[in-house]
Design a protein around this nucleic acid. Structure first.
Lengths: 345, 345
DNA sequence: AATTATTCCGTTAACGTTAACGTTATCTAA
DNA sequence: TTAGATAACGTTAACGTTAACGGAATAATT
């Protein structure tokens, strides 16, 4: 038994124990000490199910989720994945009285606007994405002032103060990519980094992945040729100038695409009649997986976006109900996918 | 609201609804139909927390776990990992009144003996390992007769009837290993499969991993030289005869260790002054991870034994409380580990 | 001195589910 | 006919936690 046993041992009623546990007023200092001592000694832990059973109907836990709008123009919606993870977590926690509302943004302006709307309502927690540094810092400040926990997903970016992040270490992911490509290409080949620039907000992860990639080669003391290509989104990357020359050489080539569009590369390689090239990219979208099946992409790196969403909700729930903040900051492992361990769809 | 609303809509008391939900006697066929119809229409789902809140003190859920004894002689205990996962799940479910007892075995005889002891008690579920085909089949039969769900972890083996497995597909893991080694070695090298034979019970997974490895090279239409080495446990493997010759050749070499002892290989290679050899093995034990850090092992494949244990307990709980069997059969993904994404310890 | 606040604490009704226990009404056997 | 059996259903206390409510004792104010 829980609170009842504590009450008996402390010679008080369960009401008083409850007051102590919730730090509410109306308890004499002496009594509080006595109760706290017994709570300590017995190692009492609150039964969250019982607590939520009562509160599920009276005091719901409301969370807001602010993520980019799903664009229907493209067949692959990255942001549907964290959403699915979130919905799975909410389903599991629905009998505990947990609800979420989804908000979406298109740019930094609407991000800030939705953020303020969210804080106008009284949510208990917020899950979002640190796409825009300035606006994310503002949001974090607002949340801190209102004592509302925020979890930032997906994007690797440094904010001013302390904050909760559930995401992959992009630098590390880049190093893994370096390891994988180097294994295939060796020290005698040419390396290319294809960095597709996003118009809406800097995708800082791209730069970090590139840094990590280069750091890997430093770590093994290999001086290889690594060339970066910046390219605008929504246009297939092109190889220009001396790159074409290098691509036409016999030496093996390694191409590291720092975002989810590695699937654009194989066609390009074929049009330049490049063979002996290896490709590593990010994210398990259909096109990438197709290329993997056709041996046109060699490795994909997954950042488990669905799990990120799932973990954020679960972590926030544990924080709000058990003041256990241990799951609010997670490093998502760098998952390596090849044809043989790829999920079938 | 749940049962109460159903009762009101069906013009019966909550007691009757409860009887219908639990298929207990004492309900007229007419009434039962009416209640079932409303349950269907409203999409009622039972509040498991509330249910377990009541039952946690009256009707505990008791699970038995039967896994190999941890051998203290070796510094690395594989079986501690599923155990840790199990304990984590039990902690999460303790407020739901879930308890587990651990049993351990040394050989097929003690496996069968412990199994019978377990079925003499009245456990609600069993988690074990299908090490021994005959005895595992007997256990499964016993469980079926008593209507007690069993989950088999870890080992890839086929049982006679249908059964629940949470484990990695070893054949697939072998194919992944083939892909990884081939990427490093290429078609011009020699491949070796080191298969360490366990005295206590056939470790069927080893053979399947080997088959998968060979199947990979078939799938890419590459005829490469692959040589198998069988070796007894607790003795460092030795290379004999023509292998030594091949090892001394300049061609790159790929070594696939089908179990967790890949860490034995590097020393051996050094003693034969073999360079240009790549090693892939299984499991994240300290020695393997050390070799990974030293670039003596190139890839490790993880089968997440801790997660297997965790998932088994959670899956059984969901089956027993929500008759949701969806998590009793899981394919553990083939996790690829390199130096850069290895867990630090 | 009488009234009003304030402090401190106990009591209690819920939350949704379960199962034992009661209570009818109908039916069977003496 | 009546006692006893049975079928069908309602009532209720409990699980652990929460928070509103109320009450007694003391302190502060008129």
């Amino acid at each position: 038994m829980g609170i009842k046993r504590i009450a008996k041992l402390a010679n008080v009623s369960i009401g008083t124990v409850d007051r102590v546990l919730h730090k509410r007023s109306g308890v004499a200092k002496e009594t509080e000490k006595r109760v706290l001592k017994i709570i300590e000694e017995t190692g009492y832990v609150k039964n969250t199910s019982a607590s939520r059973l009562k509160l599920a109907s009276v005091k719901k836990i409301r969370m807001a989720v602010l993520i980019p709008r799903e664009n229907n123009t493209q067949q692959w919606n990255y942001w549907r994945l964290p959403k699915e993870g979130i919905l799975k977590a909410v389903e599991e926690l629905s009998e505990m009285g947990v609800e979420v509302d989804f908000y979406s943004f298109l740019n930094s302006t609407s991000f800030a606007a939705r953020g303020h709307e969210i804080f106008a309502e009284d949510y208990d927690a917020l899950v979002t994405v640190p796409f825009f540094k300035k606006e994310s810092n503002e949001l974090q400040q607002l949340a801190k002032a209102k004592d509302i926990p925020v979890v930032f997903l997906d994007t690797e970016i440094a904010l001013d103060g302390p904050a909760n992040f559930i995401r992959q270490n992009s630098h590390n992911a880049g190093r893994v990519a370096g390891r994988l490509l180097h294994g295939l290409v060796g020290s005698e080949g040419d390396y290319f980094i294809v960095n597709i620039i996003n118009d809406k907000g800097v995708h800082a992860s791209g730069q970090q992945r590139e840094d990590g990639f280069r750091a890997f080669f430093k770590s093994i003391n290999q001086k290889v040729s690594i060339q970066s290509i910046q390219h605008a989104v929504d246009v297939a990357p092109v190889f220009v100038g001396e790159m074409i020359e290098k691509l036409k050489k016999d030496a093996p080539k390694g191409i590291f695409v720092t975002n989810s569009r590695a699937h654009l590369i194989p066609r390009l390689l074929m049009s330049h009649d490049v063979r002996n090239a290896f490709v590593v990219g990010f994210d398990l979208n259909e096109r990438n997986l197709m290329c993997l099946q056709r041996d046109e992409i060699d490795f994909l790196i997954n950042q488990k976006p669905d799990y990120q969403g799932y973990a954020a909700i679960k972590g926030l729930f544990n924080f709000l109900t058990k003041e256990d903040a241990s799951a609010l900051n997670l490093q998502i492992p760098v998952e390596i996918i090849v044809k043989e361990n790829a999920p079938q769809f």
